[in-house]
Design a protein around this nucleic acid. Structure first.
Lengths: 341, 341
DNA sequence: CTCCATTCGGCAAACGTTTGCAACAGCTTA
DNA sequence: TAAGCTGTTGCAAACGTTTGCCGAATGGAG
C-alpha cells in the first residue's frame, strides 16, 4: 500500500541503504545519486516511516505533554509554546488530558512511554512516589512541582502569593481568605504556605477554604462561605475560581472591590475581560513550556537534572481596593487611580 | 535497557510467540501458562512496544487531532470529548495546533500520517484540493467543513445563523452587521450565506465586515467600524470576537443591548461570564468530537463516508434587546423578562 | 491399542528502517 | 608499481513485535 524505502530503491536502481542514507546522512552519498534518489522519492510520494525508524534508533522524535485539564485556559498558552518550540527542533508534541485524575495520569504516562522520547508532566496530581516510579520508564520533566532529583521547571507562585498578600495588607485588609485549589497540587501547597506566612508575619488573619476543584463553579459555590468568614479580601488558587467568586459575589449585591477585594493567580486571557478587571499573579507559562522542552531534549545527553524557577508578577487591576484599615495614602492612591481613568 | 518480550519469554521459560499471544490473543494459550507469563511480565515491568506492534499489524491505536488554535476555547471541549471517547476504545489521541496556518496544517498531517490510524481535521484552513490530496496518505475525518466524498461532521451553523438573524429581526432590528471570520473557513462562508439570505428575505440590510482573525482583539478592533455602519445589531463569527466587540463598545459608552445588540456563535464557557451575558448559538462540540472518532474508527471497515450534521441552538441571554423598529410585543416581552429576574 | 481431533506452543518470516562492515574504484604518494 | 587513502555503495543483521504453519502432547472413541 504505502510506498517504502524499497520501492524507491528499486525505482532508482540503488540499494535500500543508499536511499536510507540519502535521508538520514546525505553527505555520505554522491550528489548525483542523491538527487536521483530524491527525485524518484518525490515522484513516488515516499515519506520515511518514523515508527520503523524509531524501532532501530530508539528515538521517536515525539514528546508527550500531559496536562490536568486542557479546558483550563491556563494550559493552552503553555501547550502552544511547547509545540512551537519543539517543532523547530523537528519534534512533535502529543498532548493528552487527564481530567484531573491521577489514575488516568499514570496510565497515560505508561501508554505514551514507548511512543515518545520523553514526557512533560504538567501540574501532576500523582504522588511523588508514583512519579519517581514512572521516571524509570521514560525521561520526565515536571512542570509546576518540585521533586528532589527530578528535572523540573516551576513558576514561583510562592513569591507571587507573597506579593499579592502584601498588596492586600498594604491596602488595609486584616482578614484574608485563601480559596484553596485541588488536593495533590504542589502549587496549592506553595501558595498556601507563602500566603499564610506573610499574613501571620504582619499579624493578619488568613482563613483557608478548601480544597476545591480549580474551576469557576467551585469559586462561585464558595461565595457564601467567604462572606461568612467576614474577611474583606480573597486570594484564589487560580483565576477561574476568582472569576467564579467575583460573579457570585456581584450577584449577591456585594461591591467589588468596595466591600471585598479579590485576587486571582495565572493571568489567563479572561481575567482582563471580566468587570472589574481581575488583579492577579501572572505566570510565565509560555517560557515554562519552552524551558521544559529544552530540558527534556538535553536530558538524554548528560542526565543533568536542573530545576528552573521562573519569576511571577503581580498585575494590579480593579478587583482590589482599600480595606477597613486602609492608611490615608492607600485611599488617596485609589482615588488618583480612578481619576486617571 | 527496556524489558522486551524476549526477556519475559526467557524468564518464564516459554517462546516469545507464547508471550506475544498472552497479550494479543489470550484464548490461544493455556490458562496456567498464561498466568505464569503474566506474573513474570508484571514482575519485570514489561510493557508491549506499541511502535513495534504497529509496524507489523499496521494499526497504531493512535488518532491525530489537528485544530487551528488550542487556545480558542471553542476547541477544548471537543478535544476532551474525543479523547475520552477514544480512550474507551483503547485509542490515544494526539493533539496538534496549527496556529491557523494552512502550511503548518499540511505538514502536520504528513508527519502524523504514519504514527496514527487516522486524523481528525478540525476547522481546516487548507483548500479542498489539498485535503483531497492528503486523504490519500491517511484516513481523514473533517470537522466543520463539507467536502463532497469526504467523511465529515459539521455543526449546522447555517441554521444557527438563521435563527440568530430571525431573533434580531423579531426584536425590530433592520440593519445588521456580520463580523466575519478568517479566510478559508467553511463555517464563515456558511454563516455569511445563511445570515445574508435571511436578512434579505426580510428586507433588512446586512453589512459584512471582514475577514478577521477569530480572536477578541479583532472583535475589539472592529468596534469603530461597526458603529460607523449605523447598524443596531451584530452577529459575530464566534464568541471570542463578540466578547471583544462587546467590551470595546462598552468602553466607548455604548449601552448593550440598549443601543446595539450583539450575538456570538459557539457558546464557549466565558460567554455566560461577561456582562451582559452573551446571546449566542450553541454548538454541540462534544458530540461532534465523539461522532468524528466513531466515524474514523469505522472507516477502516467499509470505507463508507457519511456526512453528519449536528443541530445548533440559539441561546438568548442579555446582549440582545429591542431595536428601533421593535413591535410592542417584543418590548413587552423584554420588560417581562427583566421583571422575572 | 490404534486412530483422530483438539489444544498448545515453537519456529521463522515479516514489518520498514538504520548502520557497522566490507568491497571496490580511482587517486595520490613514495 | 605497490601501498595507502578517500569516497561511494552494497550486504546483512538488528530493532520488538505478530502470525501462519507445523509438530507434540493429550484424551476420547472405537
Amino acid at each position: 500500500m504505502a510506498v517504502t524505502i524499497r520501492d524507491v530503491a528499486r525505482a532508482s536502481g540503488v540499494h535500500i541503504s543508499t536511499v536510507s542514507r540519502t535521508f538520514s546522512a546525505p553527505h555520505l552519498v554522491n550528489p548525483e545519486t542523491r538527487s536521483r534518489v530524491l527525485a524518484t522519492a518525490e515522484q513516488l510520494g515516499y515519506r520515511p516511516n518514523r515508527a520503523a525508524r524509531a524501532l532501530i534508533t530508539g528515538r521517536t522524535h515525539n514528546i508527550g505533554l500531559i496536562v490536568a485539564d486542557i479546558a483550563n485556559p491556563f494550559f493552552p498558552p503553555l501547550i502552544k509554546a511547547a509545540e512551537t518550540h519543539a517543532r523547530r527542533r523537528d519534534y512533535h508534541v502529543f498532548v493528552a488530558d487527564t481530567d484531573e485524575d491521577p489514575i488516568v495520569e499514570s496510565d497515560l504516562v505508561q501508554a505514551l512511554a514507548k511512543q515518545v522520547d520523553g514526557i512533560l508532566l504538567c501540574s501532576p496530581r500523582m504522588s511523588d512516589d508514583q512519579i519517581e516510579q514512572l521516571r524509570r520508564e521514560v525521561p520526565l520533566v515536571v512542570i509546576n512541582r518540585m521533586i528532589t532529583g527530578l528535572p523540573a521547571v516551576v513558576m514561583d507562585v510562592g513569591q507571587g502569593a507573597r506579593e499579592a498578600v502584601r498588596h492586600l495588607l498594604g491596602l488595609g485588609h486584616r482578614h484574608l481568605v485563601y480559596l484553596a485549589g485541588p488536593r495533590g497540587s504542589w502549587t496549592n501547597r506553595e501558595i498556601r504556605r507563602a500566603a499564610g506566612a506573610t499574613a501571620r508575619t504582619a499579624g493578619a488573619d488568613l482563613t483557608v477554604l478548601g480544597p476545591n476543584q480549580p474551576v469557576e463553579e467551585a469559586g462561585a459555590a464558595a461565595a457564601e462561605a467567604v462572606l461568612a468568614t467576614g474577611a474583606t479580601a480573597v486570594l484564589a488558587y487560580n483565576d477561574l475560581m476568582a472569576i467564579g467568586l467575583l460573579q457570585a459575589l456581584q450577584d449577591r449585591g456585594v461591591d467589588i472591590p468596595g466591600q471585598v477585594s479579590v485576587v486571582g493567580i495565572d493571568d489567563i486571557a479572561y481575567s482582563g475581560l471580566v468587570r472589574p478587571r481581575l488583579t492577579t499573579v501572572a505566570n510565565p507559562t509560555a517560557a515554562a513550556g519552552r524551558t521544559a522542552v529544552d530540558m527534556l531534549l538535553q536530558q538524554g545527553d548528560d542526565g543533568a537534572t536542573g530545576q528552573v524557577t521562573l519569576r511571577t508578577d503581580l498585575i494590579i487591576r480593579n478587583s482590589t481596593g482599600p480595606g477597613p484599615y486602609a492608611p490615608a495614602v492607600a485611599i488617596a492612591a485609589e482615588v488618583a487611580a480612578h481619576v486617571k481613568e
